[in-house]
């Protein structure tokens, strides 16, 4: 058994957690910290970058280096950090409003660029911090504080988005499937290149309240009942799969990451005669 424990990375004096009762953010935080411990991450060599929103407060509880920037921009800050010092473990924590709505452009480009960052995107289908308005992942027909007549837009399938953008590791877990989530986060952290983990998370306070799921248990059960594994999903029709949370690893391929490619570019540039790049 590892001598390093998850709570070696937890700022216990900042507890209780800021999040509402039944919010799944604490579970995801636990998964991340357990993965740090299992992988024996050095605090000095680790930077956790957060955006803005409920999940954006996660850095308050982590004792590695942290960077708390602006809404939607965590991956852009993280890109600068990683490219400036490729030896760092860089982890970006984003919510669905944060990372997939206002920051969606950075998500697809970080995936395309294949910067060696692990992005853990917590999806609770709404903007919790501002009172439960609809986001880019809010399911059609569901109710939020700004879709009181039923939402008319379709939500993103973020894993398909990240995969299409070229991310070499894409996975989805849920807070209900917490042991699976632990594994997915650890796999993502081990991946060289851009790794993306979407986590389906309960928000009983806002999303749950307006959709008949106002207790933590009701929300967790809803996630449980609607979760299907990737293998199960492959045998289901499009109609059957609608509204389900497909879990598992969707992409796991080897691809040279940005910093490795850039190092080669630097070597080529160093050997090129002055002005040779102009040709």
């Amino acid at each position: 058994m590892s001598s390093i424990k998850y709570d070696d990375y937890l700022l216990k004096d900042k507890l209780p957690l800021f999040w509402c009762g039944g919010c799944g953010n604490g579970n995801v935080l636990g998964s991340i910290l357990r993965a740090f411990a299992n992988l024996k991450f050095k605090r000095q060599k680790t930077v956790v970058v957060t955006g803005i929103g409920c999940w954006g407060k996660a850095d308050d509880y982590i004792n590695t280096n942290t960077f708390h920037g602006t809404h939607g921009r965590a991956l852009a800050f993280a890109t600068g950090i990683k490219l400036a010092n490729p030896d760092l473990n860089v982890i970006a924590l984003m919510g669905d409003g944060d990372g997939a709505t206002i920051g969606g452009n950075h998500l697809i480009h970080a995936a395309r660029r294949n910067v060696d960052i692990t992005a853990v995107l917590v999806n609770n289908f709404n903007y919790g911090m501002t009172g439960g308005q609809y986001s880019g992942t809010t399911p059609e027909h569901s109710f939020t504080s700004t879709s009181r007549y039923g939402h008319i837009e379709e939500g993103f399938d973020l894993c398909k988005l990240a995969a299409a953008a070229g991310a070499p590791f894409v996975a989805r877990g849920t807070v209900y499937g917490i042991t699976q989530l632990d594994k997915l986060v650890e796999q993502a952290l081990c991946k060289k290149g851009f790794s993306f983990v979407e986590v389906i998370t309960p928000c009983p306070t806002h999303f749950g309240r307006l959709n008949g799921l106002k207790t933590a248990s009701l929300m967790l059960n809803w996630i449980k009942e609607n979760s299907v594994t990737k293998n199960q999903a492959e045998k289901m029709s499009d109609g059957e799969i609608r509204g389900k949370f497909v879990t598992g690893v969707f992409v796991d391929v080897d691809k040279e990451d940005y910093s490795t490619r850039y190092k080669k570019l630097q070597q080529r540039a160093a050997e090129a005669v002055e002005g040779g790049c102009d040709k």
Binding site: F67, G69, R73, A76, T79, G80, K82, A84, H109
Partner: peptide, 13 residues
């Protein structure tokens, strides 16, 4: 937006 974010990140790194 991303450009200045990356610049800030790189500076802290």
């Amino acid at each position: 937006i991303g450009s200045i974010a990356a610049v800030i990140g790189a500076s802290v790194a």
